[in-house]
Structures are given as C-alpha cells and as structure tokens.
Design a binder for these strands. Structure first.
Lengths: 143, 143
DNA sequence: ATGCAACTTCAAGCCCACTTGAGGTCAAGA
DNA sequence: TCTTGACCTCAAGTGGGCTTGAAGTTGCAT
C-alpha cells in the first residue's frame, strides 16, 4: 500500500491526473490514511493499460467501457474484440504513414505529395479507413 | 478545380473543418470564384496525410511542422525521421496492447489484471515508453 | 503542543480541435 | 430584376482532458 506521491513517481502521472482518473472511475484507491489516499499494486497495471490505450487513440470513456471501473472488471468479449480490431486497423494506417514518410525522405521528386509511390502508400491506408467508416454507417451498433 | 462542398464530400471533412485547417495554414485554396474557395487536386492527398497523421497521434502543430504549409513543403529530413521513429514506437505499443486484449479474451484467470502473461505483455510496451521518456528528459531537444 | 509538508476538496481555468450561429455576399436560374 | 441557396466571415461556444489556485486537514518530527 502506497500513497499518491509514490504512485505518481512510479507511473509518471501527476497527482492531479490520478485524482481526476479516480473521480471519473478509471482507477480507485483502496482506502485512506487520514485524508491521504492509499493505493495497492493492481492500480499500477491499470495505469499502464490506460496509458497504452490512450496512445492507441481511445478516449477515457472508451477505456472505461473496455476495462471497467472495478478491480474485477466486467470484460465484455465483444468489446475487447472490437478494440483489438480497431487497433489492427490503426497499426496498418501507422505502418503506411511511416513507410510514406521514410519514402519521402529518400525520394527525389520535386513535389513529394505528387510522387506516385507516396500517393499509393497513402491511398492504401485511406481506403481501409473509408471502408471502415462505411461499414460503421451501415452497422452503427458495432462501432 | 472544385469547391468546398465537393472537397468535403470527397474527403469526409466538414466544410468548417476545412476552413479551420486553411486558417491555421495546414491546407490552402488556390483562389476564389466570387467568395467561394477553389481547391486543386493536391489538397486531397494533403488531407489524407493529415488524417493519417492525426490517427498516429500527432497534433495539428506537429503535422504542420512535418509537412509544411505550402504546395512545395520544406521537408526537413530530421523531422521526418523523428516522426517515423515515433510511429515505430507507437506501433510496438499498439501491438502489445492488441495482443494483451486478445489474450484477455481467452484467459481464464479470475482477475485479468493479475494474469502474469497479461502483465508481461503490458510491461514490455511500458518499458519502451519509459525508456523513451527518460531519453527525452536527458536530451530535451530531440523530442 | 506546535509547526509544517504533504496531502485534501472544489471551482475555475486552459489548450486543442473543432462547431455553431448571426449576419453578409455572390452567381445563376426563373 | 429578383430570389435562392450555397457559400462567406468572425466571434463565441463546446467537449475532452487535464491543471491551477485557494482554503482546509492531517501525520509526524521537533
């Protein structure tokens, strides 16, 4: 059991951010010593997970839906599957973008945005994105 | 040459968003017919690129620094390289997160956050992140 | 017992990335 | 010529994700 300053040091999250996350139900403290919050180890894993999920572009609301707010989260398999699929799409986009950037670095075309190779790289990722957007319009429940 | 409503349809960006991007110098219109903005094809590639870069977690400011604001952007190779490297890091994090989620879907441990396999998956990504954070503290210029 | 650093609450503020609304202008068709 | 409607500008508003500041409360060391 440790207090907010240790958790802050360990996680790199500011105390105000930790309090905010608790307020919106993303993490929890397990008790108090006087006024001071006390945390247990589990919260560190949780914070790592939140941090990664944010990097992946999920909002705090989506993260809460995914991992729940309690120690024993109700993990809905269909939600987890949807998140994993979303990450796969994102990975493909990022890969295309990275390849595009690396190509541009070595490309001698006068205007890189008009380089056919670059455009093709970008278009591939965009096409996936648009196909995805279309699907979620036809099928709004599975967002 | 086409107007804002066609560009909006083609790109999926709202007219207000397109005007906003022009205001902050991310895209440009090449002229007017009366009051109405006129765009040329190049802007579509640019918008695709912006869209991807946002997915990758870059701010509009960073995107502007990376691709410049003009038709013939000043592409700084060191900036491009840094962005590409950042994307690589992010891809690794996303991969770990996705694997973690997929594992949890099939894991029968009572509390998933305490599943050692899950923790290991998460910790790997987090370690990379923290190493990166440390490096940029020691070397604040190369962010 | 007293001080004080580290915590606490709660409301307000801030930055980013847009959106909205009010009021204005223009080009083309009836 | 007159209307229509799609565009325009500019200022203010919104929502997410925090941070900041003022004022209060504690455990612990002296």
């Amino acid at each position: 059991m440790f207090d907010i300053s240790e958790l802050s040091r360990a996680s790199g999250f500011s105390p105000s951010k930790l309090r905010y996350y608790e307020e919106i139900g993303l993490i929890r403290s397990v008790g108090r010593r006087g006024l001071k919050r006390l945390y247990e180890d589990e919260v560190k894993t949780r914070i790592s997970l939140i941090s990664l999920a944010q990097t992946a572009g999920f909002s705090l609301g989506e993260i809460k839906e995914t991992i729940g707010s309690e120690g024993r989260p109700e993990l809905d398999r269909t939600v987890l599957a949807a998140r994993a699929d979303a990450i796969d799409v994102r990975i493909k986009e990022l890969t295309a973008l990275r390849d595009g950037l690396r190509h541009v670095m070595n490309c001698t075309a006068e205007n890189h945005l008009e380089c056919p190779r670059f455009q093709r790289i970008i278009r591939v990722a965009l096409t996936k994105k648009q196909a995805d957007a279309k699907r979620s319009k036809k099928n709004p429940d599975k967002g």
